[in-house]
């Protein structure tokens, strides 16, 4: 059986909120290392990969592999009933028909309990190759969100060019063009404001801004976001969570011109 207790419901609320517009029905794969999710959007342009390590829960118990097929719209409805600071416990039997969610208020004696019916989801699981990326950029997640939103006002796609000069986000649209360039930057007092660029070779790729803006819904999960790029492979956008847990998005590049 599965029993996983999260100190704050907020974490799961934010994760589900960040991915629910991209993917609808997903398997939450539970085993003794934690709870994982991998799903593509309907058009197979983007892929979500979430890992909530067992260390992110206390306690965490999962004796055997269990796939919880959950509709994220249903899960959102139930999670709305949880206060951000509630303790959240997920429970399921070994061959479950439902997943049980319990929300406990730390301040009052209120205990809420919900069951969500599970679905049989036949999802293909993709192998994501280990990649030595040509460029890795760590930057404030709010900054990345702002750049994507600002450029989307002009164009549907953005080119991300990384060179030793820095990283340049540029777009061209009907009304004109725009770009934002960032250079490495260290803020001793506020490390969340750091921009770190690790480059082994110059990279230039073009991506759909609609997807990037969607990924940025995860910004409240982490002060920093990591962008990993290599020519002609999908972009990795990673939001690191506590205890080596993470929420990752992969986005296929635009091809040709």
């Amino acid at each position: 059986m599965l029993e996983a207790r999260l100190e704050q419901a907020n974490l799961l609320k934010k994760v589900v909120d960040a991915i629910k517009d991209l993917v609808q029905d997903c398997n939450f794969d539970c085993n003794d290392s934690g709870i994982a999710l991998q799903a593509m959007d309907n058009s197979h342009v983007a892929l979500v990969s979430m890992m909530l390590k067992s260390e992110s829960f206390s306690p965490f118990r999962c004796d055997r592999n269990i796939a919880l097929g959950i509709n994220l719209t249903s899960l959102t409805k139930v999670l709305r009933a949880a206060q951000n600071e509630d303790i959240l416990t997920l429970k399921a039997e070994d061959a479950p028909d439902v997943v049980n969610l319990v929300f406990e208020s730390a301040e009052s004696d209120r205990i809420s309990e919900y069951d969500i019916k599970l679905m049989d989801i036949d999802q293909e699981h993709l192998g994501i190759p280990e990649t030595e990326y040509a460029a890795t950029i760590s930057m404030p997640s709010a900054e990345f969100q702002r750049i994507c939103r600002d450029l989307m006002a002009l164009s549907e796609s953005v080119s991300i060019e990384c060179s030793k000069e820095g990283v340049k986000f540029a777009c061209q649209g009907d009304i004109g063009s725009g770009s934002v360039t960032l250079r490495s930057h260290t803020n001793v007092d506020k490390p969340e404001m750091n921009v770190e660029i690790d480059l082994t070779e110059p990279v230039s790729l073009t991506f759909s801004l609609k997807y990037l803006v969607g990924f940025c819904k995860a910004s409240s999960l982490s002060g920093q976001v990591k962008l990993c790029l290599s020519n002609e492979v999908p972009l990795l956008v990673e939001y690191a969570l506590a205890n080596n847990s993470y929420l990752r998005f992969y986005l296929a590049p635009k091809i040709g011109d």
């Binding site: 058009s43 197979h44 699981h125 192998g127 759909s208 999908p234 992969y250 296929a252 635009k254 040709g256």
Partner: peptide
């Protein structure tokens, strides 16, 4: 204009 690539052409079955 540029076409949109697909994730499945990069990431295959494990």
């Amino acid at each position: 204009t540029a076409g949109q690539g697909s994730i499945t052409s990069f990431f295959g079955a494990p």
